[in-house]
Design a protein around this nucleic acid. Structure first.
Length: 186
DNA sequence: CTCCGGATTCGT
DNA sequence: CGAATCCGGAGT
C-alpha cells in the first residue's frame, strides 16, 4: 500500500474536524527498523482548557506542556500506573487540544489486540519516550492511502471514562467507523 | 511533604 | 465489580 505522511497543516485545524478526518487514516510506527501499521477506527476529541474532560483544563503543567504546544506532535501519558495513551496535538500552539487514538485495525506488523487506547499503545510499542515526538518525523506518524478508499459511516458517541466532567461528559466527541469490528466499545 | 484518583484493562 | 499500580496535581 502506498502511503503519504500527513503534513502539519492537517493537525493545525479545528479539533473535531481533525478527529473525524483521522478515521480511516493509517498510524505508522517505525521501531528498530520494523514498520507497524494500523488503520485508525476510533478517536476522541479533547477540545482545550474549557473542556473539563481534557487534561489541559488544569492549565499548563509539566505533563500538559506538550498538549499546549504546537500541532502535529504526540502527547503520550501513563494512566492507572500501567497503560499508555496516545494523543495527537491539534490547533495552534497554546490551544491545548488533542485527539486521543482509541483503536486501530491491524494492517501490518502488529501482534496482539488494538481495541482500546492502552492496548493500541502496547501493540505499537508506544510509551513515554515518544511524548513530544514530532509526527512529521520517522518514528511515529499518520499517513493517508494514495489509492481511493471505500467510504464509511461515522458514529458519534459520548467519550469513554470521563463521567466526572459534568455536561462535558455528554458531548458527542467520540467518533468511530460504523460497523468496524475493531472498535473498543461499539 | 502527603493524599487522591485516573482519557484502562483484566479477572472474578 | 474490584484489583493492579504509580504518577500528576492539589492541598498542607
Amino acid at each position: 500500500m502506498h502511503l503519504t505522511k500527513l503534513k502539519r497543516g492537517f493537525y493545525n485545524r479545528d479539533t473535531i474536524e481533525v478527529a473525524r478526518d483521522l478515521l480511516g487514516k493509517y498510524l505508522v510506527r517505525v521501531d528498530h527498523g520494523e514498520r507497524r501499521i494500523g488503520r485508525i477506527v476510533e478517536v476522541e476529541a479533547y477540545l482545550g482548557p474549557h473542556d473539563l474532560a481534557a487534561h489541559t483544563s488544569r492549565g499548563i503543567t509539566p505533563r500538559t506542556r506538550i498538549m499546549f504546544g504546537p500541532p502535529g506532535h504526540a502527547y503520550v501519558y501513563m494512566i492507572y500506573g500501567m497503560h499508555y495513551c496516545l494523543n495527537l496535538v491539534t490547533q495552534p500552539s497554546g490551544h491545548g487540544s488533542a485527539v486521543l487514538l482509541r483503536a486501530i485495525e491491524p494492517v501490518r506488523g502488529i501482534h496482539g489486540r488494538t481495541q482500546g487506547p492502552g492496548l493500541l499503545c502496547r501493540a505499537m510499542n508506544i510509551d513515554l519516550h515518544l511524548n513530544g515526538c514530532d509526527l512529521l518525523g520517522k518514528d511515529l506518524y499518520v499517513a493517508a492511502a494514495r489509492q481511493p478508499q471505500a467510504r464509511f459511516g461515522i458514529v458519534r458517541r459520548p467519550r469513554i471514562g470521563v463521567d466526572y466532567a459534568g455536561h462535558w461528559a455528554r458531548r458527542l466527541l467520540r467518533f468511530y467507523i460504523k460497523g468496524s469490528p475493531f472498535v473498543s466499545r461499539p
